[in-house]
């Protein structure tokens, strides 16, 4: 028996919009810890890891660990039928091949049940150990999205370099090149507007902008994005989901031939 009630149902809607273009099918795992997902894109270049902790739900019942294979496009279609203020409850049962999404209006005067078919998905879980990163950049998520969008109109790849001067985003394409530097900036009143750079060592890595631009679909989930970089590791682009958990995107770098 599974019953997860989320007052702020719009969070789930936003999560789906953030990942459905990167990953088409995935297993949602439900345990005492929370509602989670780990899935790679079809080319195994990028990975999304989602955690919505059980404490963040208004009601959380998960009698035993359950994995639900879901077509994310279909789930997104159903969640789009929930109003922006609706409370969403996810209901499932062991041994059934469906999941039900219940939408309740704030005034409780409209209740909708959407039943969706589940599917069998071979899960390929990657073990991702905790790592020390050479540089961690925290910046406004909207600023990062703007940079990725702007650079994506010039080139296909972005070189992200962190030095003590700041974080530099560079691209080159047929029409020319572009270079954007963001310096550390903590002197603002609103901490979410700050750019904070923690650097142990300078680092410079190249990534496909197509994926970065896909990750920025999570911008609506958090005002701040954290970018963790090490020369030996995929980049981690993390959006915290207020009081509930996170959505993390991992992206393998490109290397010079």
């Amino acid at each position: 028996m599974l019953e997860l009630r989320l007052i702020q149902g719009s969070l789930l809607k936003k999560v789906l919009e953030a990942i459905k273009d990167l990953v088409t099918e995935a297993n949602f795992d439900c345990s005492a810890t929370g509602f989670s997902l780990q899935a790679m894109d079809s080319s195994h270049v990028a990975l999304v890891a989602l955690l919505l902790r059980s404490e963040g739900f208004d009601h959380y019942r998960c009698d035993r660990n359950l994995s639900m294979g879901i077509n994310l496009n279909n789930m997104s279609k159903m969640l789009r039928c929930a109003g922006p203020e609706d409370i969403i409850t996810i209901k499932g049962d062991d041994g059934t091949d469906t999941v039900t999404f219940m939408f309740e209006s704030q005034k409780q005067d409209k209740i909708s049940d959407f039943e969706m078919k589940l599917m069998d998905i071979d899960s390929e879980h990657l073990g991702i150990p905790d790592a020390e990163y050479q540089a961690i950049v925290r910046m406004p998520s909207a600023e990062f999205a703007r940079i990725c969008k702007d650079l994506g109109s010039i080139g296909d790849t972005v070189v992200i370099s962190v030095t003590k001067e700041g974080v530099k985003f560079f691209t080159r394409g047929d029409v020319g090149s572009a270079n954007i530097v963001c310096r550390q900036n903590t002197s603002v009143d609103k901490p979410e507007d700050s750019t904070v750079i923690e650097m142990n060592e300078p680092v410079s890595l190249t990534f496909a902008l197509r994926y970065m631009n896909s990750f920025t679909k999570a911008t609506t989930l958090s005002e701040v994005v954290t970018i963790s970089l090490s020369s030996e590791l995929p980049v981690v682009v993390e959006y915290k989901i207020a009081e509930m958990g996170y959505i993390r995107f991992y992206l393998a770098p490109k290397i010079e031939d």
Binding site: H44, V45, L126, P234, K254, E256
Partner: peptide, 14 residues
């Protein structure tokens, strides 16, 4: 020219 690495070059499958 650049080569796109895959995640399994860094992490192992559980």
């Amino acid at each position: 020219n650049e080569t796109q690495l895959r995640l399994d070059a860094f992490y192992t499958f559980n």
